[in-house]
Simulated scan of single mutants.
Amino acid sequence: MTSDRFDDALSYASRLHRSQRRKGANIPYISHLLSVCALVIEYGGDEDQAIAGLLHDAVEDQGGMDAARDIEARYGPRVARIVLECSDNDGHTKPKWRDRKEAYLSGITDKSDDAVLVTACDKLHNATTILHDLQSIGPDVFNRFTGRRDGTLWYYRALADTLAARQPGPLAARLSAMVTQIERAAC
């Protein structure tokens, strides 16, 4: 069950990301946030986890630590903690791509179960859209990503393997299967 708090978070996420589009596409970014939230709910997440699914990119993309403080004030410390655990940077200082991704991967073992759920749903939706775009437009899809083809393939395989080791189950298996499909389609 969701409450007015969830409704507020939905509106807040929409306002925060209103001008943002998906990487390399003219798709409003809210589509990603809604998809992640839906996956969180489908995989048993509670309202706090669903709200964190809506807001998981707010710190990185829409305000840094000011956004984190605002999220905590609006939705509480648990939601803010999940969002921070899902962020690979503070919105202001962004380390080099490979360093950032390696640090994110190594941090998965220490994430809370809450953040692992949101992270896995986020990465599953991203992988799903990568596969769809790969099938639709071909290998040029990798030009959208800093890691290009090889870096993106490395990162998603490492994510799938790390998340499966951290929290095995149907969600991790689905992510792994999706990454396998991307690897096959990218050959």
Score class of each variant (00 low, 15 high):
residue 152 T to K: 03
residue 121 C to L: 09
residue 124 L to I: 11
residue 83 V to L: 13
residue 114 D to S: 07
residue 99 D to Q: 12
residue 151 G to N: 11
residue 110 D to T: 15
residue 131 L to A: 06
residue 168 P to G: 04
residue 88 D to F: 08
residue 124 L to Q: 04
residue 90 D to W: 03
residue 93 T to Y: 06
residue 148 R to T: 07
residue 172 A to G: 00
residue 88 D to E: 15
residue 89 N to G: 06
residue 137 I to R: 04
residue 170 P to G: 01
residue 161 D to Q: 06
residue 147 G to N: 08
residue 127 A to Q: 04
residue 106 S to T: 11
residue 95 P to Y: 11
residue 124 L to D: 01
residue 154 W to K: 11
residue 136 S to I: 08
residue 88 D to M: 12
residue 79 V to Q: 07
residue 151 G to Q: 07
residue 81 R to N: 12
residue 98 R to L: 15
residue 140 D to M: 07
residue 104 Y to H: 14
residue 87 S to Q: 13
residue 159 L to R: 01
residue 80 A to G: 10
residue 118 V to K: 02
residue 125 H to I: 15
residue 155 Y to L: 13
residue 95 P to L: 12
residue 114 D to T: 12
residue 95 P to T: 13
residue 174 R to H: 01
residue 85 E to A: 04
residue 80 A to F: 05
residue 137 I to H: 02
residue 135 Q to S: 14
residue 141 V to S: 10
residue 103 A to G: 02
residue 168 P to I: 01
residue 100 R to F: 07
residue 78 R to C: 14
residue 84 L to E: 13
residue 146 T to S: 06
residue 145 F to E: 01
residue 102 E to V: 15
residue 110 D to K: 09
residue 76 G to L: 14
residue 163 L to P: 00
residue 89 N to Q: 08
residue 156 Y to T: 09
residue 82 I to P: 04
residue 89 N to A: 10
residue 76 G to A: 10
residue 99 D to C: 05
residue 129 T to M: 14
residue 86 C to L: 14
residue 99 D to S: 09
residue 79 V to C: 06
residue 81 R to A: 14
residue 138 G to D: 10
residue 96 K to A: 15
residue 95 P to F: 04
residue 150 D to V: 06
residue 111 K to F: 10
residue 175 L to W: 00
residue 132 H to L: 04
residue 90 D to R: 05
residue 173 A to S: 03
residue 90 D to C: 02
residue 151 G to P: 05
residue 117 L to W: 04
residue 139 P to N: 13
residue 114 D to G: 00
residue 140 D to A: 04
residue 86 C to K: 04
residue 171 L to M: 00
residue 122 D to V: 08
residue 112 S to V: 09
residue 110 D to F: 12
residue 164 A to V: 06
residue 79 V to P: 07
residue 115 A to V: 08
residue 106 S to R: 13
residue 92 H to D: 08
residue 80 A to H: 07
residue 173 A to G: 01
residue 95 P to A: 15
residue 101 K to D: 06
residue 131 L to H: 07
residue 166 R to N: 00
residue 81 R to P: 05
residue 107 G to I: 04
residue 118 V to L: 06
residue 87 S to G: 13
residue 135 Q to K: 13
residue 150 D to K: 05
residue 104 Y to S: 13
residue 146 T to V: 10
residue 145 F to G: 03
residue 105 L to M: 11
residue 132 H to W: 05
residue 103 A to R: 03
residue 76 G to I: 11
residue 161 D to F: 01
residue 80 A to R: 12
residue 94 K to M: 08
residue 106 S to Q: 12
residue 122 D to W: 02
residue 124 L to W: 03
residue 80 A to P: 06
residue 125 H to C: 14
residue 152 T to R: 02
residue 141 V to C: 11
residue 83 V to S: 07
residue 79 V to K: 02
residue 97 W to A: 06
residue 152 T to M: 11
residue 155 Y to Q: 11
residue 146 T to K: 06
residue 116 V to P: 03
residue 77 P to N: 15
residue 91 G to K: 07
residue 128 T to C: 03
residue 103 A to I: 12
residue 83 V to F: 13
residue 152 T to L: 06
residue 128 T to P: 01
residue 154 W to E: 12
residue 162 T to W: 02
residue 116 V to R: 13
residue 104 Y to L: 08
residue 113 D to A: 15
residue 129 T to H: 09
residue 141 V to M: 06
residue 82 I to Y: 05
residue 78 R to L: 15
residue 123 K to S: 07
residue 169 G to P: 00
residue 153 L to N: 04
